[in-house]
Simulated scan of single mutants.
Amino acid sequence: MAVLFLKGIKLRVYPNREQRAQIQASFGCNRFVWNQMLNMLITRYENNPELSLPSSYTLDYLLPQLKREYPFLKSVESTSLQVTNHDLIEAYRCFFKQHRGFPKFKSRKYPKKSYQVKMVNHNIEVVDTHQIILPKLGSMSFKTGALIKGTIKRVTIRRSVTNKYYAILLVDTSIEPLEKTKHIVGLDLGVSDLVITSTGVKYPTKRFDKQLADKKHYWEKRLARRRLQAQTQIARDHHNHVLEPRELTDFKNYQKAKLMVAKYNEKIANQRNNYLHQISKQLVEQYDVIKMEDLKTKNLLRNHHLARAIANQGWRLLRTMLAYKASWYGKQLVIVNPYKTSQVCANCGYDDGKHALNIRRWTCPNCDVEHDRDVNAALNICRA
């Protein structure tokens, strides 16, 4: 039986010049409201620290007054400002209740920007397979590899650092569970092989960062040199007391090199995400219960010889994909403590002690069974 889930669908949208200007104005207005409300919260706390934490509705009541004082706020979608208030209050509450970082003021220099729009009175509509209607923007063409089925709850309009525009739809849709296979698998995560299953299947590591390393390094060198040249020119302008000294954003050759580096980083991330999606989908289709180790990646990154290879693997992203896909399709993901999984014999349970990383195969001195280090760990994870 199909179950309702909230699902995110990413669309690549292609706004025209007027729509890009409207999106840019929305970025600015949402940033302005965030900064104004955050300043108000700080002042409120300084005046009376004993006051209870406000709700997002409290900030929403201030929006009409803020629009009267700053008429340019009327040009953007009102629900996007309400979402900004909600996000600010959540961050503000987390600081006091969960001791997270205090919300920061937003700068217009940050290249990656976004805002959200709620579905109100059918103001968001997908016309056909290539056209979507968004509030304040109108009709816009898009591309996507997923079918859009269900009720749209909200849309996030985002511009990436490579100046590409996306609309991420949050859709309430029904998903049919996959057929049960009655199989259980354990997953060991590694560096030479990305995923090793308890059945002996190994998904190899693909170093997408190395495949594009030369082209990326070509532009990284030019970016560093052009940044230094621009900073030297800016310092010279200050020394000569130029009335309007230039900033880094005014140097086109520097901006071009920065864009090219960002494009290669984006391509590497897209290739890695696509590979992880393929692996996670295969595992969810083949097994009813998936057990994987709970690796502390932050600790492993302290090994400077393997830090770049570990960062390339995307273990946490794979775990996230398996978690939501398992819930979608009626499967189960179990997280297992990896303690001694690679040194305990999966055949007899004998603890042979810690093995160096260069030892990939070992023989159990108790039962004389030869083990592949990673497959043995996956078997122990499966039986945990």
Rank of each mutant, 00 (worst) to 15 (best):
N303T: 07
N240K: 14
H304G: 08
K252E: 07
H304E: 05
L333R: 10
I290C: 11
Y275T: 03
H277Y: 04
W315A: 00
Y275E: 02
D294C: 10
V334F: 04
L248I: 14
N303C: 08
H241K: 15
E244K: 15
Y339N: 11
E266F: 02
Y324N: 06
N337S: 14
K256V: 09
L248G: 09
K252N: 09
P245A: 04
E244P: 02
K258S: 04
F251Q: 01
R319G: 10
Q286M: 10
E266I: 00
I335S: 03
K256R: 15
L300R: 01
E285Q: 15
A309W: 02
A309P: 03
Q255L: 10
V242Y: 10
N312T: 01
H238A: 05
Q271T: 04
K252T: 08
Q271S: 11
K258P: 00
M321L: 15
N273T: 09
K331H: 11
A257T: 03
V336N: 03
D294S: 15
L306E: 08
R302C: 11
G314N: 04
R236T: 12
Q286C: 05
H239A: 15
Y329E: 09
T297G: 12
N312P: 01
L248T: 10
A257Y: 01
A323E: 15
V336Y: 02
Q286H: 12
Q255W: 09
N299V: 04
H277Q: 13
H238N: 12
R246K: 14
Y324Q: 10
D237E: 15
K296P: 01
H304L: 14
L276E: 05
N270A: 02
Y324I: 09
M321I: 13
Q255I: 07
I279S: 03
R316M: 07
N337W: 04
E247Q: 15
Q271P: 01
A262H: 03
Q271F: 10
D250K: 05
L295S: 12
L306G: 07
P338S: 13
R246M: 06
V336H: 03
L259C: 07
A269F: 00
Q255R: 13
V334R: 08
G314S: 07
P338D: 11
A307V: 06
K263M: 05
N337A: 11
